[in-house]
Computed example of a mutant assay.
Amino acid sequence: MSEELLRLSKRMSELGLCSRREADEWIARGWVRVDGKVVSELGTKIYPSQRVSVERQAAAEQSKRVTVLINKPMGYVSGQAEDGYQPAVVLIKPENRWAEDPSPEQFHPTQLRSLVPAGRLDIDSVGLLVLTQDGRVAKHLIGETTDVDKEYLVRVEYTKPGKLPDSDLKKLNHGLWMDGKALQPAKVRWQNDDQLSFTLREGKKRQIRRMCDMVGLKVIGLKRVRIGKVKLGDLPVGEWRYLRPDEQF
């Protein structure tokens, strides 16, 4: 069976070495070797069986990349600025750093370079948002094959008489369709009279609001409280902290 050639940057991303963008940067700097030889031409193609290694500088560069957790307030968008709304990244400045952040990391403006959201949170939702410079973190949280679950507390109002039937709560857990596809199973349970906890593995646009809509629930407030093993905890609204070296999603 003949092997197919792959772009070196794609292969590096598949191997979990870095993101494709980082790969191109490292190739251009002469930090990547294929079968022991430096390859510095962008767009180079290799066979999957060839051995890819990176110089120590690349690992050092990567270890300097930061990941930041922010408790996003209402009215901020996750990514690019849009319609006069500011992106959450504008809140990442020394005066908004949580006073109780245990990380020894020092803030430096270079950390804002290519600090991108790993996943989104709607403008009218609050809670845990991850911003990272590390392509591996982004891929882990939002890649096609991610198995990291996310938990939300959702305040709701039932728009029909009486209360939500158990059969509809079951549908929220599994059985709803969106955009022509069956949704993956979710864990949805009542926290108290007007608040549900949603745990999801996927994140379609406005998914929770649309799921609630389908069973006659109106969302009054939505807050993300956990991504994988990382919790929002006591982080105040509008403040941020660094992901600690011992924390894993």
Rank of each mutant, 00 (worst) to 15 (best):
L164W: 02
Q86K: 08
G43S: 13
W26C: 05
L91K: 01
P185F: 01
L183M: 09
P104V: 07
E239P: 12
L131F: 14
Q80Y: 04
F249A: 14
D147V: 13
E41M: 13
V52M: 07
P109H: 08
V90T: 12
I70M: 07
Y242H: 10
D193W: 10
S103F: 07
S40A: 10
P104I: 07
L6H: 03
V68W: 00
M12S: 02
Q111I: 11
G162F: 05
A99G: 15
D149R: 02
G135T: 05
R51H: 06
L128W: 05
A28F: 08
D24C: 14
L153Y: 02
L232C: 09
L141R: 02
E144I: 05
S40L: 11
Y158L: 02
D168T: 12
P73L: 12
Q80K: 00
I227W: 01
Q57A: 15
K150S: 03
L17G: 04
E3C: 04
L172C: 08
G43Y: 14
M74G: 05
K72R: 06
L153I: 04
M211E: 02
M12L: 08
R120I: 13
G233K: 00
P48T: 05
K170Q: 11
H140I: 15
R201I: 14
V148I: 07
S9Q: 03
Q191V: 09
T145D: 14
L172W: 09
Q111C: 12
Q133V: 15
F198M: 07
L200D: 00
P236S: 09
L8P: 01
A186T: 08
S49I: 07
L243R: 03
D83R: 04
L8R: 01
P117E: 07
Q248S: 12
A99S: 14
A118F: 10
Q195W: 09
W177K: 10
E151W: 00
N71H: 08
S167T: 10
S9M: 04
Q248I: 12
V230R: 00
R155L: 12
W240T: 15
R11K: 01
Q57F: 14
R241D: 04
I208A: 02
S114W: 03
W190V: 13
G175V: 05
D147S: 10
V52L: 13
V188K: 00
L200T: 02
V130Y: 03
E4I: 09
F249T: 15
N71E: 03
D179E: 09
S53L: 07
S78W: 08
V137L: 06
K37W: 05
D24I: 12
R226L: 05
S19L: 11
I46N: 00
D213T: 00
D168F: 12
W240P: 02
D83A: 15
T132R: 01
Y85Q: 06
L196G: 08
D101E: 10
P117F: 09
S125R: 01
Y152Q: 04
L235D: 01
P185A: 03
W240H: 12
R189M: 13
Y85N: 03
G75I: 11
H140F: 14
V34Y: 04
P165I: 06
E25Y: 04
R29G: 09
P245A: 15
L91H: 01
Y47G: 03
Y158A: 00
K231P: 05
Q195K: 08
S78T: 15
H140N: 13
R11F: 02
I27C: 13
